[in-house]
């Protein structure tokens, strides 16, 4: 049966790109969901995540082979693993992975390249 073909956000951009001491490669970020517990349901969310602590501002916590990344007050990004069954009863669970593009920048010049991109 006919299917749709998935394309990367970097389609047509000729990655990996290596210039001087910097190398940029595309990475498939895998699935990602925005999770925001409803009021009073934080404990239930934590329980469904296997007792994991929810991340504080600026924190990135491991969750199995996935990660929980704090993104906003009362909200974190669950990346690399699908959310557990029943989570949407206790939290706003919104798929976000297709809106993300992730690339890896490495090499001796990586910091200098970033210095010219980082917003003030």
């Amino acid at each position: 049966m006919a299917r749709l073909i998935a394309t990367s956000p970097f389609e047509g951009l000729s990655l990996p790109l290596a210039i001087g001491g910097a190398r940029l490669s595309a990475v498939d970020p895998g699935p990602a969901w925005s999770v925001a517990p409803f009021r009073g349901h934080e404990a239930a969310v934590s329980r469904l995540l296997g007792g994991a602590m929810l991340p504080d501002p600026g924190q990135v916590l491991a969750w199995g082979e996935g990660r929980m990344i704090w993104v906003a007050p009362g909200r974190f990004l669950l990346a690399g693993r699908p959310p557990p069954e029943g989570l949407s009863a206790h939290a706003s669970v919104v798929e976000q992975g297709d809106g993300l593009a992730v690339a890896v920048l490495e090499g001796s010049a990586a910091q200098d390249v970033l210095a010219r991109l980082r917003p003030p």
Partner: peptide, 12 residues
């Protein structure tokens, strides 16, 4: 209000 709003313009 117990509600969350998330932008999904780029998701879909």
């Amino acid at each position: 209000l117990d509600v969350h709003c998330v932008s999904v313009t780029e998701q879909w």
